[in-house]
Design a protein around this nucleic acid. Structure first.
Lengths: 327, 327
DNA sequence: CTGTTAGCGCGTTCAG
DNA sequence: CTGAACGCGCTAACAG
């Protein structure tokens, strides 16, 4: 040791200096400063009874500002609890998700927050994740011991579509992502419930599913708008589909004289600049950052309780608000 | 051990099974499956000559889709190299940044990628970060041994402003974030250079700096537009200021008859739906995800070289393209 | 083919 | 007040 003392003395000094002579402490600190010595947190957390201070967070698409905001909320709460975030992007791919989860567990994270890519649950069973606390966000998975925080997908969609119907729209297309994503099915249920209540039926030619990114959503919109009997409104079930739809609408807005009027948009998920769109926009609104905060809070509720698995699994459904962004 | 063997046999089996009898391997694997056993990566990486497989990434604002995209790019490359991301949000706060960096170092990350919040460099000195490879992204810091990847801030801004001048705009306001952020100064330099070249001078009443989020940017825009001699165009030096400006513009667009015409927008950073805006929009364009990829690539270039510090520090300046998004 | 020893960095426990 | 021994989980090197 640079200060001519044993490692033990350094440890004690860095731990607060109890039972170390002040002058020795000073020497130790000087050496620490000079060498830029830092305690090895990996080794520290290896000691019995110590945790890693790490939370594993796996989301499906970091490129979607929605999930960036979600991660932001998670990080905010985690920082408050002195934890760090191990972040992974599954890209809506189950294999990648499995690898992420395995790796996080191997790295001794204290808990997992996951936006699941599918309904697959084998890799999420207690044994697979070493009985770690698990929080599922945005989407639930059947048959898993986990807390879940989701949105009022069905109700929000129903009320959103009802709002459109009240405004006089009759041919509302459905633009959704892959059906392996649980939310899209719930949102579709709300969509058909609203139509049914209004005495309308779901028209399969108006339903397009499977768009996972902006580009494919734009293409699907283009097909819809070019169809012989195009929609007068589009229900985009997430942020990516909404942006894609609007980009196609934007492409057609210029130089457009008297062709078909452009459709209005109903979007699940808010997005920036919604109020400046050239068509009517209604938002089924909620705050992804708050979703992240609440997900993290659920996790820390368990982590900070003495018996993490006494409490039954919570399923929180966050409300959504239907809001006219652009009349 | 559940399978009645020593830890060593388990280790060998999990490592590929060399020198373990097949039937013993089977027993071990059965026990592993049953118990959900995972190797402890923290303990593994504690062994001499082993690295943690972790990269520390600190960005300034995860709530900005720009940085979400940046993180996406970093994660993409890191995953390719089998590394995980430890993600932290500094919130443009130096203290938080310092704590993040210290913590990352303590956790034995293999390298750091940082969007620095300021020009402060003390906490980034080699000794402070244990001689770890460091990559600065988007913003540089003087007096630091690090690779940097930045944008052509000055040139891009100059060309952007020139484009606006060519289109006939004469009163171009400058909407920038805090001057502690390096890029804003570089972008201001490009702005004034273009004005000067056109025989114009910077009008201080048209310069608003310090807006770090959408809300304050919107307020600043409101003040500019209400001034006696308002701008005919606004140069927003980043994504957040552009969105704020547009939100204020959007607020004024409805019911607007013959008052002042609304200003055009020049934005450093692209944003979704730029082409659908109600005013002319010119973008000084570049890809934040690619920025993230390149930053990560710079880091792995060093990490995979035998002598990580032989190569001199690289400073890459990524080009920007001036593009009319909404004529 | 399998087990033992040793050591990575830390701090609790127990001796000085 | 300070140091030495021990063990956290892992595996390279060495015995057997």
């Amino acid at each position: 040791m640079r200060a001519g003392v044993s490692p033990m003395t350094v440890s004690r000094t860095l731990a607060g200096g109890t039972n170390v002579r002040p002058d020795v402490q000073a020497r130790v600190m000087a050496a620490v400063d000079e060498l830029g010595y830092r305690r090895n947190e990996m080794a520290r957390s290896l000691r019995p009874g110590h945790r890693s201070g790490l939370i594993g967070v796996a989301i499906t698409n970091l490129g979607n500002p929605y999930y960036g905001d979600f991660a932001f909320g998670v990080e905010e709460i985690a920082a408050k609890f002195g934890r760090r975030i191990l972040l992974g992007n599954s890209g809506e791919d189950l294999g990648r998700e499995e690898r992420l989860v395995r790796d996080f567990v191997g790295r001794q994270v204290e808990g997992l927050i996951l936006v699941p890519a599918s309904q697959e649950n084998q890799h999420l069973q207690p044994r697979e994740i070493q009985n770690m606390p698990l929080v599922l966000a945005s989407r639930m998975v059947e048959g898993v011991r986990a807390d879940s925080i989701v949105l009022d997908d069905t109700g929000g969609s129903r009320r959103g579509v009802e709002t459109m119907l009240k405004s006089g729209y009759r041919r509302i297309a459905f633009l959704g992502n892959a059906t392996s994503v649980q939310t899209v099915n719930r949102r579709f249920a709300g969509y058909s419930a609203a139509l049914q209540k209004a005495g309308l039926t779901v028209e399969t030619s108006l339903v397009a599913m499977g768009q996972q990114d902006v580009r494919t959503a734009q293409q699907a919109t283009s097909v819809l708008l070019d169809s012989p009997n195009p929609p007068d409104a589009i229900f985009a079930t997430n942020n990516r589909n909404a942006i894609g739809a609007l980009q196609e609408i934007g492409r057609r807005v210029t130089g457009r004289a008297g062709a078909h009027p452009l459709p209005a948009l109903l979007s699940f998920d808010d997005f920036e600049l919604a109020s400046l769109m050239p068509v009517r926009v209604v938002i089924i609104d909620h705050d992804p950052r708050e979703l992240g905060r609440r997900a993290a809070q659920l996790l820390f509720d368990r982590l900070t309780s003495e018996s993490p698995f006494d409490a039954p699994n919570a399923t929180i459904e966050m409300p959504t608000i239907v809001r006219v962004a652009r009349p």
